[in-house]
Design a protein around this nucleic acid. Structure first.
Lengths: 162, 162
DNA sequence: CAGCATCCACTGTGATACTG
DNA sequence: CAGTATCACAGTGGATGCTG
């Protein structure tokens, strides 16, 4: 895989040093500033942080299969059985359940062909497709930095043992 | 919050239509193609999909607090008590536990000041800071599309009741 | 083929109480 | 202040068997 670069990652050295004073200009320019400002805004809009957009999205992406299913469907629509074969270690129960959740959230569509035996096709909706952009950034990061994360884990665990 | 646009989302109409034939050129250009190709590559590199980079990253981001903590630290370093106040409904246990995980993954650093009483400061590491870029994209998507997702949910639930 | 129902184990999460 | 330890519980995920 050759896309493990860090292109697109706006890394600036002033990240931890920006004060509230220059937030008007800097905040929107750096990821750190924008995220920090957004966080502040959420805490005023949402009584409990549990309802903020981050949760709405990540509670889904964070489960065991949703993201892998979305990525699989990014290539082309799949039938139920195809998905099952594409995700070898998923149980039928979790596949059905996760597909329902994704459908409920409007990210994927379900089309039934009333043949015998019946066949059902799942595909990304336009909304689901717009998620692929942000998702790709995250996947790139994961792909590029997995070695660093794993080394950090080894170092951390090693320090405990010593 | 004024950044709820869809800027940066490379949405193309050929998403579901790309075949393997033009993958050499198209695949790397669209999020769908790149994700799809990456998925194929993982399945060869990782015996079980459970070990793929997506999991390594999302298992962490997907838990209840990690992302909120990272975003909070994006602004500036925080002490333990500060974090607790910044995340009103987090329990002490989960704060400690999540901070340890993030530290283990090398995303945040922990600095102890041996004063009395002791104080401990948490801050993003350089590695953790590079995550802010991808994370921002995801947060933008969440922020922009939360209404659409919630409407889809209502529509789905309504259809069941009818 | 696609999917539902049931039972069960594990893990994540939280409340509470205690400590250097 | 910044934790650790213990207990209890709910949600998630998996195995199996059955159905239109």
């Amino acid at each position: 895989m050759g896309h493990g670069n860090s292109e697109g990652t706006t890394l600036r050295s002033d990240v931890g040093a920006a004060t509230a004073a220059d937030a008007g200009f800097t905040a929107a320019a750096t990821p750190a500033g924008e995220l920090s400002a957004g966080m502040t805004a959420w805490k005023q809009r949402y009584p409990d942080l549990a309802a903020c957009p981050i949760r709405t999205v990540l509670d889904r992406l964070g489960d065991k299969w949703s993201t892998l299913i979305v990525i699989t469907l990014a290539g082309r629509p799949h039938r139920f059985g195809e998905l099952r074969r594409a995700l070898p270690d998923i149980s039928q129960r979790m596949l059905t359940q996760t597909l329902r959740e994704l459908q409920r959230d409007g990210l994927i569509g379900r089309t039934v062909f009333p043949t015998t035996p019946p066949s059902v096709e799942y595909a990304l909706t336009p909304l689901g497709t717009t998620l692929l952009g942000p998702l790709r950034e995250l996947v790139r990061w994961a792909d590029a930095n997995q070695p660093a994360v794993e080394e950090a884990r080894r170092a951390f665990d090693g320090r405990l043992a010593a």
